[in-house]
């Protein structure tokens, strides 16, 4: 196997013909599904795609680079407000507002990250916590711009004269963006920049000896992750067609942290699996509560939010202790077991 050409193939995105076939099949499903699939499933998948983008962003910061951010939701909020304001006031199309949302969020991220990332230690946790509360304060209190708790309402996104006002249309906007951003992240980690991020997570001083400028790369990682949050927030604004501060509270930051941990820190597949698990979870919880609520007369609306908190927290704790590499690791084990079956017990 170790002939001279094998390692060129080793470095390729798709290593075997089988993988290419799978990719083509997946592409076909992604095109056909929103046309023929049931509406609420298409809606769900649109939301999933947005969550995948946001999870990937946080995974770049926390999973790959080992920096903890507790303000991811607030950064998404910056993206959502940026996109909504540009769309409402300047009538800008989404293909301009979304990059702008990403760019401004990255900038805000750098502003919050710079003071704490200059020093070694856990200071970014505090800075991002500060970002979470300060940005939320800005969303609520800067009334003239954000309309406070009332929030902003958006016109649907348009392209080529088509109005993207159904979940099927939105799917065609959200999914390609998600795929492009996933590929970007995946590529990042097979190159110099991504390797430097992981090196910082593993041993920052050794990385420095090898020529990695710690402050620059930590900031870069944080900026890229925030860019992802901004784009995800912008898409969310178009997806729900309104932006209110309440959407971007601390609980959403917890949601994405759980998503990264459950899926698998430092893995692209982990971001996908984590987002999938966490997007399904609230639906499952709702079903369970409704089921028991009917039987025992529990007030569904009152229990649902605390139950979510409880389960998100529990997942973070359990996965960190028992499965620190997340669902990816479990998935790989199953795959290996299937591949080697029946040779190995």
């Amino acid at each position: 196997m170790q002939i001279t050409t094998s390692y060129i193939q080793d470095e390729a995105l798709f290593r075997t013909r089988g993988q290419i076939v799978w990719a083509v099949l997946l592409g076909a499903v992604l095109v056909l599904f929103p046309i023929f699939g049931p509406g609420h499933w298409v809606y769900f998948c649109g939301l999933l795609a947005i969550n995948i983008i946001a999870t990937t962003g946080l995974n770049i910061i926390t999973g790959y680079t080992g920096l903890l951010s507790l303000g991811h939701a607030a950064f998404m909020g910056v993206g959502a407000y940026t996109a909504a304001l540009l769309a409402v006031h300047f009538n800008m199309p989404f293909y301009l507002t979304l990059p702008a949302a990403g760019a401004l969020t990255a900038l805000v991220g750098v502003a919050f990250g710079l003071p704490s990332l200059r020093i070694r230690g856990l200071y970014l946790v505090i800075a991002t916590l500060a970002a979470q509360f300060i940005l939320h304060f800005v969303f609520v209190e800067w009334d003239s711009l954000t309309k406070g708790d009332v929030g902003l309402v958006l016109e649907p996104a348009r392209i080529f004269g088509i109005t993207l006002n159904t979940e099927r249309h939105m799917f065609f906007l959200v999914t390609p963006v998600a795929i492009v951003m996933l590929l970007f992240a995946h590529n990042l980690f097979r190159s110099r920049v991504g390797r430097a991020f992981v090196a910082i997570r593993e041993r920052d001083l050794t990385a420095e000896v090898l020529g990695v400028h710690l402050v620059k790369y930590k900031l870069m990682s944080f900026a890229i992750g925030s860019f992802y949050a901004g784009v995800a927030g912008g898409l969310m604004a178009y997806f729900f067609r309104f932006v209110i501060p309440e959407q971007y509270g601390l609980l959403l930051s917890v949601f994405f942290l759980a998503s990264v941990i459950v899926g698998g820190m430092g893995s692209t597949l982990g971001s996908i699996l984590g987002a999938l698990f966490m997007t399904i979870l609230p639906e499952v919880l709702r079903l369970i509560v409704q089921l028991f609520g009917d039987t025992y007369g529990v007030d569904v609306t009152k229990v649902l939010v605390p139950l979510r908190e409880t389960v998100f927290g529990l997942l973070i704790v359990l996965f960190l202790i028992f499965a620190p590499h997340g669902l990816v690791q479990i998935w790989e084990r199953i795959r290996l077991a299937v591949a080697t079956w029946p040779l190995k017990g």
């Binding site: 190159s191 110099r192 920049v193």
Partner: peptide, 17 residues
Amino acid sequence: LGAHTTLRSGPLAAGVF
């Protein structure tokens, strides 16, 4: 990683690959 100093790609070029 030992070759970090001999490579030039920035984040944009790296992500596009």
